[in-house]
Simulated assay, not measured.
Amino acid sequence: MNQSIKGIAIAALALLLTNPVVALPHKTNQPPTNARSQPLKDTLIVPGERIGPITRTTTKQDLAKLFGASHLVDKTISGAEGIGSFAATQVNLNQGRSLLVVWSDNTRTKPLDVRNLGWAWKTREGIGVGTPLSELRKKLGDFKLYGLAWDYGGTILLDSSRLSSYQGKLILRVDTAPNAAQKYPNDYQAVSGDSTFSSSNLHWKPLGIRLEEIILLLNPSQ
Rank of each mutant, 00 (worst) to 15 (best):
K138S: 15
V191C: 09
D159L: 14
G118N: 08
K27C: 04
A180R: 07
L207N: 04
K122W: 00
R97Q: 15
R210D: 07
S161M: 04
H26N: 15
S78G: 11
S37Y: 01
P32F: 06
T109Y: 00
E125H: 12
G128E: 04
L148S: 11
L72E: 06
P185L: 04
S199R: 06
R108Y: 01
G118S: 07
P20V: 13
E81V: 11
Q90E: 11
G82Q: 02
G193T: 06
L93I: 04
Q95W: 03
K169N: 12
V46I: 13
G68L: 00
W119R: 15
L157K: 02
L15I: 02
D42W: 02
K139Q: 13
H26G: 14
G208V: 07
L40Y: 01
P25K: 08
P47S: 06
D62S: 07
W121V: 05
L66N: 05
V46H: 00
W119E: 13
T33W: 04
R50L: 04
L72T: 06
W204C: 08
Y184N: 14
A88V: 04
A177E: 13
L211G: 02
K139G: 03
W103Q: 01
Y146N: 09
W103V: 05
I77S: 00
P132F: 07
K183L: 09
N2W: 05
T59R: 02
L24W: 13
G52H: 02
A88Y: 03
L217N: 11
E212I: 05
I83S: 08
Q38T: 08
G208F: 08
L163N: 08
Q182A: 13
T33Q: 10
G130R: 12
L157S: 03
L170V: 06
S134H: 10
R124A: 13
G193F: 02
T18I: 10
P31R: 05
I5Y: 11
G84D: 01
P178D: 10
L140H: 10
L163W: 06
D74T: 14
H203L: 01
Q189R: 14
P185A: 03
K138V: 13
T18M: 14
L211W: 00
L202G: 05
G48F: 05
L24S: 08
D74F: 00
L157D: 09
L16W: 10
L211T: 02
Q222E: 11
D42Q: 07
S4C: 10
S199A: 15
T57E: 14
I83N: 05
Y146V: 11
V91K: 00
S200Q: 11
H26T: 13
T155N: 11
P53Y: 11
V22Q: 12
L202D: 13
N116K: 13
L211M: 03
T43W: 00
N29V: 09
R210G: 05
G79F: 03
L93H: 01
E212W: 13
R115K: 12
L17S: 14
S164Y: 09
E213T: 15
I215N: 09
S165P: 02
P31G: 06
D187F: 07
L112F: 04
N219C: 04
R97H: 00
G153Q: 03
S164K: 13
P206T: 08
S78P: 02
L63T: 07
S85Q: 15
